[in-house]
Design a protein around this nucleic acid. Structure first.
Lengths: 234, 234
DNA sequence: CGCGGGTTTGAACTTTCTCAATTGTAGTGG
DNA sequence: CCACTACAATTGAGAAAGTTCAAACCCGCG
Protein backbone atom coordinates (compact mmCIF):
# COMPACT_ATOMS: atom_id res chain seq x y z
CA UNK A 1 0.00 0.00 0.00
CA UNK A 2 1.29 3.39 -1.03
CA UNK A 3 1.73 5.84 1.83
CA UNK A 4 2.09 9.33 0.46
CA UNK A 5 0.81 12.54 1.97
CA UNK A 6 1.32 14.26 -1.36
CA UNK A 7 -1.46 12.15 -2.84
CA UNK A 8 -3.70 12.09 0.19
CA UNK A 9 -7.12 13.60 -0.07
CA UNK A 10 -6.88 14.70 3.55
CA UNK A 11 -3.68 16.62 3.01
CA UNK A 12 -5.23 20.04 3.48
CA UNK A 13 -6.51 18.91 6.84
CA UNK A 14 -3.35 17.54 8.37
CA UNK A 15 -0.46 19.04 6.41
CA UNK A 16 0.61 22.59 5.67
CA UNK A 17 -0.60 24.16 2.42
CA UNK A 18 1.33 26.03 -0.22
CA UNK A 19 4.36 23.77 -0.28
CA UNK A 20 6.86 23.69 -3.11
CA UNK A 21 7.16 20.41 -5.05
CA UNK A 22 10.42 19.72 -3.28
CA UNK A 23 8.92 20.32 0.15
CA UNK A 24 5.96 18.19 -0.73
CA UNK A 25 8.33 15.34 -1.47
CA UNK A 26 10.04 15.74 1.86
CA UNK A 27 6.74 15.78 3.65
CA UNK A 28 6.04 12.26 2.48
CA UNK A 29 8.87 11.15 4.73
CA UNK A 30 6.96 12.24 7.82
CA UNK A 31 4.70 9.22 7.73
CA UNK A 32 6.50 6.01 8.56
CA UNK A 33 3.66 3.54 8.19
CA UNK A 34 -0.05 3.24 8.46
CA UNK A 35 -1.68 1.33 11.22
CA UNK A 36 -5.15 -0.13 11.52
CA UNK A 37 -7.03 0.14 14.79
CA UNK A 38 -10.07 -2.03 15.41
CA UNK A 39 -13.14 -0.58 16.98
CA UNK A 40 -12.92 -0.68 20.75
CA UNK A 41 -9.15 -1.06 20.88
CA UNK A 42 -6.65 1.59 21.89
CA UNK A 43 -4.17 3.35 19.65
CA UNK A 44 -2.17 4.29 22.73
CA UNK A 45 -2.68 4.24 26.45
CA UNK A 46 -1.84 6.36 29.43
CA UNK A 47 1.67 5.48 30.56
CA UNK A 48 2.92 4.08 27.28
CA UNK A 49 6.12 5.47 25.82
CA UNK A 50 5.53 8.28 23.37
CA UNK A 51 7.23 8.01 20.01
CA UNK A 52 4.86 9.20 17.36
CA UNK A 53 2.01 11.47 16.57
CA UNK A 54 -0.88 9.97 14.65
CA UNK A 55 -2.90 11.47 11.84
CA UNK A 56 -6.32 9.92 11.54
CA UNK A 57 -6.89 8.63 8.05
CA UNK A 58 -10.25 6.99 8.59
CA UNK A 59 -12.39 6.26 11.60
CA UNK A 60 -13.30 8.01 14.80
CA UNK A 61 -11.53 8.22 18.15
CA UNK A 62 -12.09 9.38 21.68
CA UNK A 63 -9.31 10.40 24.02
CA UNK A 64 -9.77 10.17 27.76
CA UNK A 65 -7.82 10.81 30.91
CA UNK A 66 -8.20 8.81 34.07
CA UNK A 67 -7.72 10.08 37.61
CA UNK A 68 -5.97 7.99 40.25
CA UNK A 69 -9.30 7.13 41.77
CA UNK A 70 -10.48 5.71 38.47
CA UNK A 71 -12.62 8.58 37.39
CA UNK A 72 -12.71 9.00 33.67
CA UNK A 73 -13.03 12.09 31.53
CA UNK A 74 -13.36 12.11 27.76
CA UNK A 75 -11.18 14.99 26.59
CA UNK A 76 -12.13 14.92 22.95
CA UNK A 77 -13.51 13.14 19.91
CA UNK A 78 -11.30 13.06 16.84
CA UNK A 79 -12.07 12.36 13.22
CA UNK A 80 -10.29 12.06 9.87
CA UNK A 81 -7.54 14.59 9.30
CA UNK A 82 -7.00 15.34 12.98
CA UNK A 83 -3.78 14.71 14.88
CA UNK A 84 -3.60 12.87 18.18
CA UNK A 85 -0.84 12.08 20.61
CA UNK A 86 0.32 15.62 21.41
CA UNK A 87 -0.09 14.97 25.13
CA UNK A 88 2.84 12.55 25.06
CA UNK A 89 5.50 15.07 24.10
CA UNK A 90 6.14 16.64 27.54
CA UNK A 91 7.22 13.54 29.37
CA UNK A 92 7.87 11.07 26.58
CA UNK A 93 4.87 9.14 27.84
CA UNK A 94 1.26 9.32 26.86
CA UNK A 95 -1.02 10.73 29.52
CA UNK A 96 -4.33 9.67 28.06
CA UNK A 97 -5.94 6.79 26.19
CA UNK A 98 -6.95 6.98 22.56
CA UNK A 99 -9.74 4.54 21.75
CA UNK A 100 -11.15 3.85 18.32
CA UNK A 101 -14.94 4.21 18.30
CA UNK A 102 -15.07 2.59 14.88
CA UNK A 103 -12.56 0.69 12.79
CA UNK A 104 -9.87 3.18 11.96
CA UNK A 105 -6.60 3.72 10.20
CA UNK A 106 -3.91 6.17 11.24
CA UNK A 107 -0.69 7.48 9.76
CA UNK A 108 2.18 6.98 12.16
CA UNK A 109 4.49 10.00 12.28
CA UNK A 110 7.59 9.40 14.40
CA UNK A 111 8.14 12.53 16.42
CA UNK A 112 11.89 12.73 15.98
CA UNK A 113 11.40 12.59 12.24
CA UNK A 114 8.93 15.47 12.50
CA UNK A 115 11.57 17.36 14.44
CA UNK A 116 14.27 16.83 11.84
CA UNK A 117 12.06 17.67 8.91
CA UNK A 118 10.63 20.76 10.51
CA UNK A 119 14.16 22.14 10.81
CA UNK A 120 14.42 21.94 7.04
CA UNK A 121 10.90 22.63 5.95
CA UNK A 122 9.92 25.89 7.50
CA UNK A 123 6.25 25.49 6.81
CA UNK A 124 6.20 22.19 8.65
CA UNK A 125 7.69 23.74 11.75
CA UNK A 126 5.03 26.39 11.81
CA UNK A 127 2.38 23.82 11.07
CA UNK A 128 3.31 21.74 14.11
CA UNK A 129 3.12 24.85 16.26
CA UNK A 130 -0.24 25.70 14.82
CA UNK A 131 -1.63 22.24 15.46
CA UNK A 132 -0.61 22.34 19.08
CA UNK A 133 -1.88 25.85 19.52
CA UNK A 134 -5.17 24.88 17.94
CA UNK A 135 -5.54 22.10 20.45
CA UNK A 136 -4.91 24.54 23.29
CA UNK A 137 -7.55 26.88 21.94
CA UNK A 138 -10.00 24.04 21.47
CA UNK A 139 -9.53 23.05 25.07
CA UNK A 140 -10.14 26.62 26.17
CA UNK A 141 -13.50 26.28 24.49
CA UNK A 142 -14.22 23.06 26.32
CA UNK A 143 -13.29 24.71 29.59
CA UNK A 144 -15.74 27.48 28.86
CA UNK A 145 -18.38 24.89 28.11
CA UNK A 146 -17.71 22.84 31.22
CA UNK A 147 -17.25 25.81 33.48
CA UNK A 148 -20.16 27.99 32.59
CA UNK A 149 -22.78 26.31 30.42
CA UNK A 150 -25.93 24.46 31.35
CA UNK A 151 -26.85 21.05 30.04
CA UNK A 152 -28.84 22.24 27.03
CA UNK A 153 -26.17 24.70 26.00
CA UNK A 154 -23.49 22.05 26.28
CA UNK A 155 -25.32 19.56 24.12
CA UNK A 156 -26.23 22.20 21.57
CA UNK A 157 -22.62 23.34 21.36
CA UNK A 158 -21.52 19.74 21.04
CA UNK A 159 -23.88 19.00 18.18
CA UNK A 160 -23.01 22.17 16.31
CA UNK A 161 -19.32 21.47 16.68
CA UNK A 162 -19.63 17.89 15.48
CA UNK A 163 -21.76 18.70 12.48
CA UNK A 164 -19.52 21.60 11.51
CA UNK A 165 -16.45 19.37 11.50
CA UNK A 166 -18.27 16.67 9.59
CA UNK A 167 -19.44 19.20 7.06
CA UNK A 168 -15.83 20.33 6.54
CA UNK A 169 -15.22 16.72 5.51
CA UNK A 170 -18.00 16.66 2.98
CA UNK A 171 -20.81 15.28 5.09
CA UNK A 172 -24.24 16.73 5.62
CA UNK A 173 -24.71 19.92 7.52
CA UNK A 174 -27.78 18.62 9.25
CA UNK A 175 -27.53 14.87 9.56
CA UNK A 176 -25.04 12.88 11.57
CA UNK A 177 -24.46 9.50 13.12
CA UNK A 178 -23.05 9.59 16.61
CA UNK A 179 -20.13 7.27 16.98
CA UNK A 180 -20.19 7.39 20.78
CA UNK A 181 -22.59 6.36 23.51
CA UNK A 182 -24.65 8.71 25.65
CA UNK A 183 -22.28 7.96 28.45
CA UNK A 184 -19.27 9.06 26.42
CA UNK A 185 -21.05 12.23 25.37
CA UNK A 186 -21.89 12.80 29.01
CA UNK A 187 -18.33 12.29 30.11
CA UNK A 188 -17.13 14.79 27.56
CA UNK A 189 -19.77 17.33 28.51
CA UNK A 190 -19.55 16.83 32.25
CA UNK A 191 -23.05 15.38 32.47
CA UNK A 192 -24.57 12.02 33.36
CA UNK A 193 -25.83 9.88 30.52
CA UNK A 194 -29.40 10.30 31.72
CA UNK A 195 -29.10 14.05 31.46
CA UNK A 196 -27.76 13.74 27.92
CA UNK A 197 -30.67 11.51 27.01
CA UNK A 198 -33.24 13.82 28.57
CA UNK A 199 -31.76 16.80 26.83
CA UNK A 200 -31.95 15.02 23.48
CA UNK A 201 -35.58 14.27 24.22
CA UNK A 202 -36.23 17.88 25.08
CA UNK A 203 -34.65 19.05 21.81
CA UNK A 204 -36.75 16.52 19.92
CA UNK A 205 -39.91 17.68 21.67
CA UNK A 206 -39.09 21.27 20.67
CA UNK A 207 -38.59 20.16 17.05
CA UNK A 208 -34.99 21.22 17.08
CA UNK A 209 -33.63 17.79 16.29
CA UNK A 210 -34.88 14.37 15.33
CA UNK A 211 -33.22 11.58 17.28
CA UNK A 212 -33.37 7.90 16.50
CA UNK A 213 -30.77 6.20 18.61
CA UNK A 214 -27.49 7.45 17.27
CA UNK A 215 -28.95 8.98 14.17
CA UNK A 216 -29.48 12.68 14.60
CA UNK A 217 -31.04 15.09 12.18
CA UNK A 218 -30.79 18.76 13.00
CA UNK A 219 -34.03 20.47 12.07
CA UNK A 220 -33.30 23.94 13.39
CA UNK A 221 -29.64 24.95 13.43
CA UNK A 222 -30.53 28.53 14.33
CA UNK A 223 -32.34 27.34 17.44
CA UNK A 224 -29.28 25.40 18.52
CA UNK A 225 -27.15 28.49 18.05
CA UNK A 226 -29.58 30.51 20.11
CA UNK A 227 -29.40 27.96 22.89
CA UNK A 228 -25.61 28.06 22.95
CA UNK A 229 -25.57 31.83 23.17
CA UNK A 230 -28.20 32.27 25.78
CA UNK A 231 -27.08 33.92 28.93
CA UNK A 232 -28.07 32.07 32.07
CA UNK A 233 -26.32 34.48 34.41
CA UNK A 234 -23.88 37.32 34.25
CA UNK B 1 18.88 46.85 32.30
CA UNK B 2 20.59 43.61 31.31
CA UNK B 3 18.30 41.07 29.71
CA UNK B 4 19.99 37.69 29.65
CA UNK B 5 18.40 34.30 30.07
CA UNK B 6 21.84 32.85 30.72
CA UNK B 7 22.01 34.77 33.98
CA UNK B 8 18.36 34.46 34.93
CA UNK B 9 17.47 32.65 38.12
CA UNK B 10 14.30 31.38 36.46
CA UNK B 11 16.17 29.79 33.58
CA UNK B 12 15.47 26.22 34.66
CA UNK B 13 11.78 27.02 34.64
CA UNK B 14 11.41 28.58 31.22
CA UNK B 15 14.41 27.46 29.20
CA UNK B 16 15.81 24.07 28.27
CA UNK B 17 18.52 22.62 30.50
CA UNK B 18 21.84 21.08 29.59
CA UNK B 19 22.79 23.61 26.93
CA UNK B 20 26.33 24.07 25.67
CA UNK B 21 27.92 27.50 26.33
CA UNK B 22 27.41 28.36 22.69
CA UNK B 23 23.76 27.41 22.76
CA UNK B 24 23.30 29.33 25.97
CA UNK B 25 24.61 32.41 24.26
CA UNK B 26 22.17 31.97 21.38
CA UNK B 27 19.31 31.52 23.77
CA UNK B 28 19.83 35.03 25.06
CA UNK B 29 18.67 36.25 21.67
CA UNK B 30 15.22 34.82 22.23
CA UNK B 31 14.22 37.62 24.54
CA UNK B 32 13.81 40.92 22.75
CA UNK B 33 12.88 43.15 25.66
CA UNK B 34 11.23 43.09 29.02
CA UNK B 35 7.91 44.68 29.62
CA UNK B 36 6.24 45.81 32.81
CA UNK B 37 2.54 45.17 33.30
CA UNK B 38 0.66 47.04 36.01
CA UNK B 39 -1.81 45.21 38.17
CA UNK B 40 -5.23 45.09 36.58
CA UNK B 41 -4.00 45.79 33.06
CA UNK B 42 -3.76 43.33 30.20
CA UNK B 43 -0.62 41.93 28.64
CA UNK B 44 -2.65 40.98 25.59
CA UNK B 45 -6.28 40.76 24.66
CA UNK B 46 -8.53 38.54 22.66
CA UNK B 47 -8.39 39.68 19.04
CA UNK B 48 -5.00 41.39 19.18
CA UNK B 49 -2.35 40.37 16.70
CA UNK B 50 -0.04 37.68 17.99
CA UNK B 51 3.66 38.30 17.68
CA UNK B 52 5.36 37.06 20.80
CA UNK B 53 5.23 34.60 23.59
CA UNK B 54 5.81 35.94 27.07
CA UNK B 55 7.81 34.44 29.89
CA UNK B 56 6.69 35.72 33.27
CA UNK B 57 9.61 37.14 35.16
CA UNK B 58 7.71 38.44 38.18
CA UNK B 59 4.06 38.79 39.08
CA UNK B 60 0.94 36.77 38.61
CA UNK B 61 -1.50 36.53 35.72
CA UNK B 62 -4.85 35.09 34.85
CA UNK B 63 -5.93 34.18 31.33
CA UNK B 64 -9.57 34.15 30.37
CA UNK B 65 -11.71 33.49 27.36
CA UNK B 66 -14.96 35.27 26.64
CA UNK B 67 -17.94 33.82 24.80
CA UNK B 68 -19.92 35.88 22.31
CA UNK B 69 -22.64 36.36 24.89
CA UNK B 70 -20.15 37.88 27.31
CA UNK B 71 -19.67 34.87 29.50
CA UNK B 72 -16.22 34.68 30.95
CA UNK B 73 -14.07 31.71 31.87
CA UNK B 74 -10.72 31.90 33.58
CA UNK B 75 -8.58 29.31 31.82
CA UNK B 76 -5.56 29.51 34.08
CA UNK B 77 -3.42 31.34 36.58
CA UNK B 78 0.24 31.82 35.69
CA UNK B 79 3.24 32.65 37.80
CA UNK B 80 6.97 33.32 37.42
CA UNK B 81 8.73 31.09 34.92
CA UNK B 82 5.60 30.16 33.01
CA UNK B 83 4.96 30.97 29.37
CA UNK B 84 1.81 32.62 28.08
CA UNK B 85 0.50 33.50 24.68
CA UNK B 86 0.50 30.03 23.09
CA UNK B 87 -3.14 30.42 22.12
CA UNK B 88 -2.21 33.09 19.59
CA UNK B 89 -0.12 30.90 17.32
CA UNK B 90 -2.92 29.18 15.37
CA UNK B 91 -4.51 32.23 13.85
CA UNK B 92 -1.93 34.93 14.44
CA UNK B 93 -4.35 36.48 16.86
CA UNK B 94 -4.76 36.04 20.56
CA UNK B 95 -7.93 34.28 21.59
CA UNK B 96 -7.89 35.13 25.27
CA UNK B 97 -7.02 37.95 27.63
CA UNK B 98 -4.00 37.90 29.91
CA UNK B 99 -4.51 40.13 32.94
CA UNK B 100 -1.90 40.90 35.58
CA UNK B 101 -3.25 40.20 39.06
CA UNK B 102 -0.29 42.01 40.57
CA UNK B 103 2.41 44.25 39.12
CA UNK B 104 4.39 42.06 36.81
CA UNK B 105 7.28 41.93 34.41
CA UNK B 106 7.51 39.67 31.39
CA UNK B 107 10.20 38.73 28.87
CA UNK B 108 8.97 39.35 25.34
CA UNK B 109 9.99 36.55 22.99
CA UNK B 110 9.13 37.30 19.35
CA UNK B 111 7.74 34.12 17.90
CA UNK B 112 9.54 34.27 14.59
CA UNK B 113 12.81 34.60 16.45
CA UNK B 114 11.91 31.49 18.46
CA UNK B 115 11.27 29.73 15.18
CA UNK B 116 14.63 30.67 13.69
CA UNK B 117 16.60 29.81 16.77
CA UNK B 118 14.87 26.50 17.31
CA UNK B 119 15.99 25.45 13.85
CA UNK B 120 19.56 25.89 15.02
CA UNK B 121 19.34 24.95 18.65
CA UNK B 122 17.84 21.54 18.77
CA UNK B 123 17.07 21.63 22.45
CA UNK B 124 15.07 24.80 22.02
CA UNK B 125 12.88 23.20 19.38
CA UNK B 126 12.09 20.33 21.66
CA UNK B 127 11.57 22.69 24.54
CA UNK B 128 8.93 24.66 22.68
CA UNK B 129 7.13 21.43 21.85
CA UNK B 130 7.30 20.37 25.45
CA UNK B 131 5.88 23.63 26.72
CA UNK B 132 2.92 23.40 24.40
CA UNK B 133 2.36 19.77 25.22
CA UNK B 134 2.53 20.54 28.92
CA UNK B 135 -0.18 23.13 28.48
CA UNK B 136 -2.35 20.58 26.68
CA UNK B 137 -1.87 18.08 29.48
CA UNK B 138 -2.59 20.72 32.11
CA UNK B 139 -5.84 21.53 30.37
CA UNK B 140 -6.77 17.86 30.32
CA UNK B 141 -6.48 17.99 34.08
CA UNK B 142 -8.73 21.01 34.24
CA UNK B 143 -11.27 19.26 32.06
CA UNK B 144 -11.24 16.33 34.44
CA UNK B 145 -11.76 18.70 37.31
CA UNK B 146 -14.58 20.62 35.64
CA UNK B 147 -16.22 17.56 34.20
CA UNK B 148 -16.29 15.20 37.10
CA UNK B 149 -15.40 16.76 40.44
CA UNK B 150 -17.60 18.25 43.09
CA UNK B 151 -17.00 21.66 44.68
CA UNK B 152 -14.84 20.46 47.56
CA UNK B 153 -12.69 18.33 45.32
CA UNK B 154 -12.22 21.19 42.89
CA UNK B 155 -11.10 23.62 45.54
CA UNK B 156 -8.83 21.07 47.18
CA UNK B 157 -7.19 20.27 43.86
CA UNK B 158 -6.83 23.96 43.16
CA UNK B 159 -5.09 24.67 46.46
CA UNK B 160 -2.76 21.71 46.15
CA UNK B 161 -1.80 22.70 42.65
CA UNK B 162 -1.12 26.31 43.59
CA UNK B 163 0.94 25.50 46.65
CA UNK B 164 2.92 22.90 44.74
CA UNK B 165 3.85 25.38 42.04
CA UNK B 166 4.72 28.01 44.63
CA UNK B 167 6.87 25.54 46.48
CA UNK B 168 8.76 24.77 43.28
CA UNK B 169 9.63 28.47 43.31
CA UNK B 170 10.95 28.46 46.82
CA UNK B 171 7.83 29.44 48.72
CA UNK B 172 6.21 27.67 51.61
CA UNK B 173 4.56 24.33 51.14
CA UNK B 174 1.71 25.25 53.43
CA UNK B 175 1.17 28.96 53.30
CA UNK B 176 0.05 31.06 50.39
CA UNK B 177 -1.48 34.36 49.46
CA UNK B 178 -4.17 34.19 46.86
CA UNK B 179 -3.66 36.75 44.16
CA UNK B 180 -7.19 36.40 42.82
CA UNK B 181 -10.72 37.03 44.07
CA UNK B 182 -13.22 34.36 45.03
CA UNK B 183 -15.02 35.16 41.83
CA UNK B 184 -11.93 34.46 39.74
CA UNK B 185 -11.32 31.21 41.58
CA UNK B 186 -14.94 30.34 40.97
CA UNK B 187 -14.71 31.11 37.30
CA UNK B 188 -11.67 28.89 36.98
CA UNK B 189 -13.30 26.06 38.91
CA UNK B 190 -16.72 26.35 37.34
CA UNK B 191 -18.35 27.46 40.58
CA UNK B 192 -20.05 30.59 41.85
CA UNK B 193 -18.08 32.77 44.21
CA UNK B 194 -20.45 31.97 47.07
CA UNK B 195 -19.75 28.28 46.66
CA UNK B 196 -16.03 28.95 46.75
CA UNK B 197 -16.43 30.95 49.93
CA UNK B 198 -18.63 28.33 51.57
CA UNK B 199 -16.18 25.60 50.67
CA UNK B 200 -13.32 27.57 52.19
CA UNK B 201 -15.39 27.95 55.35
CA UNK B 202 -16.10 24.26 55.41
CA UNK B 203 -12.41 23.42 55.10
CA UNK B 204 -11.64 25.87 57.88
CA UNK B 205 -14.30 24.32 60.08
CA UNK B 206 -12.76 20.89 59.51
CA UNK B 207 -9.32 22.26 60.44
CA UNK B 208 -7.95 21.52 57.01
CA UNK B 209 -7.02 25.11 56.25
CA UNK B 210 -6.89 28.45 57.99
CA UNK B 211 -8.35 31.24 55.89
CA UNK B 212 -8.05 34.95 56.54
CA UNK B 213 -9.21 36.71 53.40
CA UNK B 214 -6.61 35.87 50.82
CA UNK B 215 -4.14 34.42 53.24
CA UNK B 216 -4.40 30.67 53.35
CA UNK B 217 -2.50 28.28 55.56
CA UNK B 218 -2.84 24.61 54.80
CA UNK B 219 -3.01 22.66 58.03
CA UNK B 220 -3.65 19.21 56.65
CA UNK B 221 -2.30 18.50 53.19
CA UNK B 222 -3.14 14.83 53.46
CA UNK B 223 -6.78 15.65 54.06
CA UNK B 224 -6.84 17.80 50.94
CA UNK B 225 -5.35 14.95 48.96
CA UNK B 226 -7.97 12.59 50.31
CA UNK B 227 -10.70 14.98 49.27
CA UNK B 228 -9.35 15.22 45.72
CA UNK B 229 -9.21 11.48 45.38
CA UNK B 230 -12.56 10.62 46.79
CA UNK B 231 -14.88 8.91 44.44
CA UNK B 232 -18.32 10.47 44.27
CA UNK B 233 -19.58 8.16 41.54
CA UNK B 234 -18.25 5.56 39.19
C1' DC C 1 -35.81 -15.75 19.37
C1' DG C 2 -33.74 -14.22 23.18
C1' DC C 3 -29.80 -11.91 25.07
C1' DG C 4 -27.38 -7.74 26.35
C1' DG C 5 -25.70 -3.30 25.74
C1' DG C 6 -27.43 0.99 25.22
C1' DT C 7 -31.27 4.22 25.82
C1' DT C 8 -35.33 6.33 27.71
C1' DT C 9 -38.20 7.89 31.38
C1' DG C 10 -39.92 8.68 36.20
C1' DA C 11 -39.47 10.18 41.01
C1' DA C 12 -36.87 11.39 44.94
C1' DC C 13 -32.77 13.40 46.35
C1' DT C 14 -28.35 16.37 46.38
C1' DT C 15 -25.66 19.83 45.11
C1' DT C 16 -24.98 24.07 43.62
C1' DC C 17 -27.05 28.41 42.38
C1' DT C 18 -29.61 32.58 43.22
C1' DC C 19 -30.93 36.37 45.75
C1' DA C 20 -30.33 39.07 49.64
C1' DA C 21 -28.47 40.81 53.74
C1' DT C 22 -24.26 41.51 56.52
C1' DT C 23 -19.65 41.98 57.50
C1' DG C 24 -15.03 42.83 56.63
C1' DT C 25 -11.05 45.33 54.41
C1' DA C 26 -8.36 48.56 52.02
C1' DG C 27 -8.03 52.90 50.16
C1' DT C 28 -9.39 58.13 50.06
C1' DG C 29 -10.01 62.44 51.52
C1' DG C 30 -11.68 65.57 55.04
C1' DC D 1 -6.85 59.91 62.51
C1' DC D 2 -11.16 58.70 61.41
C1' DA D 3 -15.16 58.54 58.63
C1' DC D 4 -16.58 57.12 54.34
C1' DT D 5 -16.70 54.63 50.17
C1' DA D 6 -16.05 50.82 47.23
C1' DC D 7 -15.08 46.38 46.74
C1' DA D 8 -14.59 41.69 48.41
C1' DA D 9 -16.08 37.99 51.29
C1' DT D 10 -19.28 35.56 54.26
C1' DT D 11 -23.60 33.58 55.44
C1' DG D 12 -28.54 32.22 55.15
C1' DA D 13 -32.74 30.54 52.93
C1' DG D 14 -35.21 29.04 49.08
C1' DA D 15 -35.06 27.56 44.15
C1' DA D 16 -33.27 25.21 40.26
C1' DA D 17 -30.54 22.10 37.82
C1' DG D 18 -28.63 17.88 37.54
C1' DT D 19 -27.88 13.30 39.79
C1' DT D 20 -29.20 8.90 41.54
C1' DC D 21 -31.69 4.82 41.56
C1' DA D 22 -34.87 2.01 39.40
C1' DA D 23 -37.72 0.19 35.88
C1' DA D 24 -38.89 -0.46 31.21
C1' DC D 25 -37.74 -0.37 26.51
C1' DC D 26 -35.55 -0.73 22.08
C1' DC D 27 -32.71 -2.76 18.78
C1' DG D 28 -29.08 -5.20 16.64
C1' DC D 29 -26.77 -9.51 16.78
C1' DG D 30 -25.60 -14.15 17.56
Amino acid sequence: MKVACSNCNLRELCMPVGLSPHELARIDEVVAVRRKVKRGTTLFRNGEVFQSLFAIRTGFFKTCVTAEDGRDQVTGFQMAGEIIGLDGIVNDHHTCDAVALEDAEVCVMPFDRIGELSREVNALQHHVHRIMSREIVREHGVMLLLGSMRAEERLAAFLLNLVQRLHARGFSRSELVLRMTREEIGSYLGLKLETVSRTFSKFAEDNIVEVRQRHVRILDTAALRRIVNQQPAA
